[in-house]
Simulated scan of single mutants.
Amino acid sequence: MNIKQASKQSGVSAPNIRFYEKEGLLNPARLPGNDYRDYTEQDIRTLRFIRMLRMLDVPLPVIRSVLAGDASLGSVLREQKTALEQRAKQLEGAARFCAELARQDPSVASLDVDACLSRMEDPAQPQNFFCGWVQDYRTLAQVQHQRHFSFIPEGSINTPQEFTAALQTYAKANGMQLSLTKEGMYPEFSLDGILYKAYRNPGKYRDEICCDAASPEQLNTGLPSRRERQLQVLRILLPAAFTFAAILAAGWVATGGADWLWLAALAAAGVLLGRGFEHRL
């Protein structure tokens, strides 16, 4: 069969077939008289085999060694599996860094390129276990805050105009860009490009304004799902652990013993229940 037929049956383009021949991966027979290539079924199988290994990103020199019998397919696949796993870790780190930069939404002029390159080129950074967890925890906390946040305005909120003024004051105090799309007691607006809906939570002494992202599913951390679940659990447990430690330490200083252990445990349990309830909401 000719090269056009071979390309159709193997799924390999004609230029690539010629390239593989040039690289010594394929050596089709030639027709007597006109010297045209004559591809056999075995050649088609070889082309499909090359195509399969290239889809696994196996380098051409390694494929050549396999076809020549100088390397076993099993050993090559095991080595490639290790290489792909290492690359996946690098890509995972790159994806997380991209997500972090995207959340900051920098401009070309404001981006600290040198700092970015230092982080990306530092081979020790991915191995820094503690700093990695701290950075991921900060990322999770930032995204959670973007999905839902609340604040206490100055004075009560009784009119749409007062609601708008409170949002403007909050945005200005935090250096954020506010764009109001719907005024009212349930206003809709954007902060730094993120769309929100807000409502007033009346209190006995002060009102609270609660803001929910209109599309929270679009605000993702860029972290692996397992890592994010672990950090969410940690975010619930940490305040309770710190509360327990603080009360126990205060009791030890005050009485010289562990007499406040029950109070520390009770307070920590209360904080834990509160954080768990808040997470469920």
Rank of each mutant, 00 (worst) to 15 (best):
N2Q: 06
Q5N: 14
Q9N: 10
Q9D: 12
G11V: 05
I17F: 04
R18M: 01
L26E: 06
N27E: 12
Y39K: 07
T40I: 06
E41W: 10
Q42V: 13
Q42N: 09
R45H: 12
L47K: 01
L47F: 05
L47R: 03
F49A: 01
R51I: 00
M52H: 08
L56H: 10
P59H: 11
D70C: 02
A71K: 11
L73R: 00
V76R: 05
L77F: 07
R78E: 08
R78P: 00
Q80R: 14
A83P: 03
L84D: 05
E85L: 06
Q86I: 01
R87M: 02
R87A: 01
E100L: 10
Q104W: 09
Q104K: 12
D105H: 07
D105G: 01
A109L: 05
S110F: 02
V113W: 02
V113P: 00
D114N: 10
C116S: 07
S118M: 13
M120I: 03
E121P: 03
Q127T: 11
C131W: 07
G132I: 12
Q135M: 07
Q135H: 10
T139R: 15
T139Q: 14
L140G: 08
Q142R: 15
V143G: 09
Q144A: 15
H148E: 13
H148N: 12
F149P: 01
S156V: 03
S156F: 12
T159I: 11
N174E: 09
N174R: 15
K182Q: 09
M185E: 02
Y186H: 13
F189G: 00
S190L: 04
D192W: 14
D192A: 08
Y196W: 14
Y199W: 15
G203M: 07
K204P: 00
I209M: 12
S215P: 01
T221C: 13
T221M: 10
S225W: 08
R226I: 06
R226V: 12
R226C: 03
R229K: 13
Q230S: 11
Q230N: 06
L231H: 04
L234F: 15
L234R: 02
R235Y: 15
I236P: 00
L238C: 05
L238K: 04
A240Y: 12
F244T: 02
F244S: 04
A245R: 11
A245D: 08
A246V: 03
A250S: 04
G251E: 04
A254D: 09
G256W: 03
A258V: 12
D259Q: 14
W260C: 07
W260Q: 04
W260F: 15
L261D: 02
L263N: 03
A264Q: 06
V271I: 11
L273V: 08
G276L: 15
F277R: 10
F277S: 07
H279R: 14
L281V: 15
